[in-house]
Design a protein around this nucleic acid. Structure first.
Length: 423
RNA sequence: GGAGAGGUGGCCGAGUGGCUUAAGGCGCACGCUUGGAAAGCGUGUUUACUCGAGAGGGUAACCCGGGUUCGAAUCCCGGUCUCUCCA
């Protein structure tokens, strides 16, 4: 959530930035500022009243100690009015605070200056492209056919046991999953990310911290009896490790990674996009997270992008990087780079990673701050990226590395798999 | 699932209604002392909101939320977490 301080001090910049998302937040922001002024006014009135009643209470205490009961009783009678007034101001304060927060939560993050103002994915800017486009043999087929032919993934069995979008991986297909996870974790480890195995269910506070709640609960599976949510991404538990914390500047940057399954209801998705591994309700992902000094966060974003590049190059996959336009960016992000690999048999680009800088948007919700070397406390910047999400990587590995008699495993992955071909 | 004990500052720990934002200790920072260090001595050492140009002031916070009271770390109720024992 945007900070009130930013709205107060640089409202025009924020409005301009938000216009890149094609939303006009000016009315909401005016309202927040107005409520905030009321809140401050209410608070100073309340503080005055409380100060008065504290003084009276101390007097009463003194009088009682001195045995002057009657004088004490006289002062007591003065406090009733103060009490009533302060109770009503307290209620007003709580209401104002709740209103401000509720409205602030509906305003998305302000995009960075370099983000362009497009509306749809077509407006995203391609910033980088690498890898060779594969030339497939005449009988090349999409991954879902390869998965069936070589008994790697069983979609129908998943539908029987759970439902559509919950495949079984089997045999070399299962081993390939483990190999990819291990490769990704080893790379993250080598890059200095500390590995965590987080819980897969999170509470509502954590959902709020990273921005899934309120309003996006429809995208998460909800364990109602215990009011817990299945994580849609490892970002949620990993980033929430640092909820309600005050760090020292010397502790930055914090670099975390973790492998988790991810669960997404994907309400509203349908059509050909969902074929095979293209869109699943449960999938595996290695996530990298960084918490850093505001002055460092864009250098960090670049480093995270480079890290993901390295993974795709190791897998010998052709890919491109897009800087998302304002209209296509996630609610909480200030700048996002998407990675897409070319899936040759489908002849489509598939999103396999999204790397974002949230600046202080999550940190403000998380209450994650650091005390600088100058003694001042400020919000950190949070960033995260998929490194990587498995299903579409598997889809493109299968499709791009297929030949007449099977599928070649890229060199970097062979030691992890324990085999160099699927056939 | 049942029974009991407990949750106080960076840490340990005192505190059962007012003189307690919180004794004492440890740690940490700065200063004095010293040839240098240790010890010793002194000073300082939470956060949020808010008022103020600043110095500084006000309010709130002793797991969380309610309540009793003129006044709550302290009493009451609910929740939560930790520990011990039982199943």
């Amino acid at each position: 959530m945007l900070t009130i301080q930013a709205l107060r001090e640089e409202k025009d910049r924020v409005l301009q930035a938000l216009s890149k998302r094609h939303i006009d937040a000016s009315a909401d922001i005016e309202r927040v500022l107005e409520w905030d002024a009321q809140r401050r006014n209410t608070q100073s009135m309340l503080d005055d009243l409380l100060a008065q009643s504290n003084t009276l209470s101390r007097e009463i205490g003194g009088l009682i100690r001195d045995g002057k009961k009657e004088e004490a009783e006289a002062i007591k009678s003065q406090t009733a009015d103060l009490k009533e007034q302060s109770a009503s101001l307290k209620t007003q304060m709580h209401e104002l605070e709740a209103s401000i927060q509720a409205l602030l939560c509906t305003i998305p993050n302000a995009p960075h200056l370099d983000v362009i103002a497009g509306k749809t994915p077509e407006d995203n800017v391609e910033t980088f492209r690498a890898g060779e486009m594969p030339k497939l043999h005449a009988g090349a087929v999409p991954h879902w056919e390869l998965a069936e032919r070589y008994k790697l993934i069983d979609f129908e069995l998943g539908s029987k046991v759970t439902g559509a979008g919950f495949p079984f991986y089997r045999g070399k297909g299962a081993k390939l999953q483990r190999a990819l996870i291990q490769l990704f974790l080893d790379r993250a480890d080598a890059a200095g990310y500390e590995e965590y195995i987080p819980p897969l269910l999170i509470n509502a506070e954590s959902g709020f911290g990273t921005g899934q709640l309120p309003d996006k609960e429809g995208q998460m599976y909800h364990a109602v009896a215990d009011d817990l949510f299945l994580i849609p991404t490892g970002e949620v538990p990993l980033t929430n490790i640092y909820r309600d914390t005050l760090l020292k500047e010397a502790e930055l940057p914090i670099k975390l990674c973790g492998y988790t399954p991810c669960f997404r209801r994907e309400a509203g998705s349908y059509g050909k996009d969902v074929r095979g591994l293209n869109r699943l309700h449960q999938f595996d992902k290695v996530e990298i997270v960084q918490i850093n000094h505001p002055e460092q966060s864009y250098a960090t974003l670049e480093a995270m992008v480079d890290h993901v590049k390295g993974l795709l190059e190791a897998l010998e996959l052709p890919y491109r990087i897009l800087r998302l336009c304002g209209g296509d960016m996630g609610f909480t992000s200030a700048m996002t780079f998407d990675f897409e690999v070319f899936s040759a048999a489908q002849e489509r680009w598939l999103e396999v990673s999204s790397v974002s800088n949230f600046e202080t948007y999550q940190a403000n919700r998380l209450k994650c701050r650091f005390k600088g070397n100058d003694g001042k406390t400020q919000l950190v910047h949070t960033l995260n990226g998929s490194a990587l999400a498995l299903p579409r990587i598997v889809a493109s590995l299968l499709e791009n590395h297929q030949d007449e008699s099977g599928i070649r495993i890229p060199t970097a992955l062979q030691a992890y798999c324990g085999f160099d071909r699927i056939d």
